[in-house]
Design a binder for these strands. Sequence first.
DNA 1: TGTACATCAGTGAACGCGCGTTCACTGATGTAC
DNA 2: TGTACATCAGTGAACGCGCGTTCACTGATGTAC
Lengths: 242, 242
Amino acid sequence: MPESVVPSVVQSAPRSARERVRLELTSEIKQVALAQLASSGGAALSLRAIAREMGMASSALFRYFRNRDALLTALIIDSYSSLAEAAETAEARVHEESIEDRWMAICHGVRNWALAHPHQYALIFGSPIPGYAAPNGTVAPASRVPLLLGDLLGDLMSEKSYDYGALPEPSAAIQRAIAPVRATMATGVPSELIVRGLMAWTYLFGAVSFEVFGHRHNVIADPEAFFDYEVRRLAGMVGLSH
Amino acid sequence: MPESVVPSVVQSAPRSARERVRLELTSEIKQVALAQLASSGGAALSLRAIAREMGMASSALFRYFRNRDALLTALIIDSYSSLAEAAETAEARVHEESIEDRWMAICHGVRNWALAHPHQYALIFGSPIPGYAAPNGTVAPASRVPLLLGDLLGDLMSEKSYDYGALPEPSAAIQRAIAPVRATMATGVPSELIVRGLMAWTYLFGAVSFEVFGHRHNVIADPEAFFDYEVRRLAGMVGLSH
DNA sequence: TGTACATCAGTGAACGCGCGTTCACTGATGTAC
DNA sequence: TGTACATCAGTGAACGCGCGTTCACTGATGTAC
């Protein structure tokens, strides 16, 4: 197992051989679990099946994860992180280009990751798993893509040509409605910009989910071309271009 | 069991008492199944649990549904139909008003239904159920909400004040990409209008799914107010207003 | 209207399979002196 | 460097539970004459 598959939670370097083996096995369990997600979905994830596949007693897994939910949580955190990394990498490649180019890169990054990992995508953006409650640890990794969009908006705002004083601000009721997001951002971001960011994120999620969940079958013949077109138009609509 | 819960598939009136009882029991099974969806989700839907709840032998259910998938299909069709009915009813109430009012009515109709029936919503718009393939019978009921939006666009097009000759048509590649939707519509609808309809539908789905699946927790304080605001703005963006 | 037969609903046992989690245990690896 | 002890990984049996589906059957309802 190469080092790159080590759990994404930052950890001090393993001191003993035993500890290194433990980290490797932990991530092997997660990999086998991901492979099983593909055939059965998150709700049906089975510890016994994972143990069988790995050739060990099912009881051994409990040395690595307290219970099934703990494994699910680890998979969810990994999935959010993997998605975020894909989006961030895609954006980094065009980071010096226009805001619109960066938006397009993020969109395609998210879509490509989702199509390559449909079951991980379903795990984090599909139906909630009954009986499972996401712990706080999932919040930070889940926020990375929205934060990336937030950065875009910030850069848009600081562009000299951008007259953000001229933005009409939404009503007080709407400002109150978006107060929680605002609280997670730097002060001074105009509400109008936050609304645009939320709408862009909502649209991106809607388009990708439609495709990944099969609702564009027999509707769109060339999903990639249409996706490129629709998110570019959306950029125009919410002022992410020129 | 009142008559109104009879299966939505049109059926000739029951001739015998036996037949009437059969229809009633069929729909009672579905209702119990829906109640169980709420606590366990579609993937874990259990025939034995349903039978237990109904006080009958689990084998008796096989007289009503050939197998588990047949029951799932019935639930999916019912859910699509129930959602469509909610949207159509909401639209009918303001059918004489402006296009924008009708759009808003559809949006709120869809959202209200989804919030009232989150597990049915998840069943049709959430993660696909592993190992289950939707049969053709689900296509028609699934199309009713999109068709409703299509009607809106049609009415928009036929408004005297609407200069649809002036619409810029998307590229040939995009026209090819949306060919499958076009095939389901009356001829002569401009591609640009179809694109706008698709984008409106994608956004509506994205916004409702975000909320129903919990991704607006700690993000939006007043989901209803924000939803009203965002879909109204979207109407402006895609030309569904004034 | 009554009888004979066919249809159907529902039963209960059985098949063969799955699951998460606990627990006392063995044997290997690591640590302190 | 060697020894004594503590820590930890992994085992395998067990608990108590679940599931979909089949099948031979009983008894009630419906149909044809």
